[in-house]
Design a protein around this nucleic acid. Structure first.
Lengths: 169, 169
DNA sequence: CACCGCATGTAACGTGTTACATGATTCA
DNA sequence: TGAATCATGTAACACGTTACATGCGGTG
């Protein structure tokens, strides 16, 4: 996923590695930062695959910078990423496995697990709601949308916990 | 996650590797099967960590089987897994990154991406709904609950797509 | 006889996480 | 002067996915 993101960033304008890292962090609203090293390893893979190419840029007194740009193959790859929907049907959910096995093994209190999970989710929703309001006040509509997505997922989990409790609580 | 699941299965009764694989598949309602190899590598790690221990069981004419059981440390590890809530606030969402970069780079049609994603999600929801009904008819309440969770997540994604369209469509 | 289920693994690859290494510049 | 930011990487580790290797036993 990080590779496609880098292609997308380079479609805006050519950038060097560190620049890409900073830009990617900004896209994610500084909520979760990528490790610099990961960016450089992703870059070198993309370069090997011929999806990006580097131009050395001399800066007086400072060491050269490697500025990357999309190749034609890279632009095509990016287009097919944009064209394909994200398929993420997750049928290997940790919480489901935990509750199922807690119920079957009999060595754990299923209701207690559900209560604990609900508390954790509510705390997370609260924190995210505050973060979203903060982003809105800063005029960062993109990040507030990102955070809203995370909230919606947690609310779905809460509904699912309700279902579980109704059926096996 | 698979390691914890194996601990949970062994809390029910001691089992050998292949048995664990079959049981884990069954927990997941055969919807997604784990690779046998992964089970064995997970087992050997758990054994090295002292969370499970093996007893060799002789079977006449057939080669011996390694039957695993929880150690005390394994039982404690399982308890702390049950006690801790699942924390999965995902703020690095692929669809979000895709839409953000499509919008910024200007080389892709954001509305088209949203439409494509909505179709894919609706198709997935339809398929999952049918699967859930099938599971209900078979009396497999656990799996139908698992599938319902996946549906709820997809519905959250649909809401989020609506939001996106309203704000930047 | 050929294929499937039982039973136990190893090897290679992809991706992500964390930590470490190096060196220059800028700023309090 | 010491810490933060700029700039480029390498190495180790975790986890999951796929494929491959081996051998036994039963069934069509």
């Amino acid at each position: 996923m990080i590779k496609e993101a880098l292609l997308g960033l380079l479609a805006v304008r050519p950038m060097h590695g560190y620049d890409l890292k900073i830009s990617l962090d900004r896209v994610l609203g500084e909520t979760s930062k990528v490790n610099v090293g990961q960016v450089y390893t992703a870059i070198s893979k993309l370069e090997k695959e011929g999806l990006i190419a580097a131009d050395l840029v001399a800066r007086d007194e400072k060491p050269d910078m490697k500025v990357f740009r999309l190749t034609e193959a890279g632009a095509r790859e990016l287009q097919s990423w944009f064209a394909a929907p994200v398929e993420k049907v997750d049928l290997r959910d940790e919480l489901f496995i935990k509750l199922t096995l807690a119920s079957r093994s009999g060595v754990a209190d299923v209701r207690a697990i559900i209560r604990t999970q609900r508390s954790a989710n509510m705390a997370a929703i609260l924190a995210l709601t505050q973060l979203r309001e903060q982003m809105e006040q800063q005029g960062d509509d993109d990040t507030s949308l990102l955070v809203e997505g995370a909230i919606l997922h947690l609310e779905a989990d809460m509904q699912w916990l309700d279902l579980w409790e109704r059926r096996r609580g």
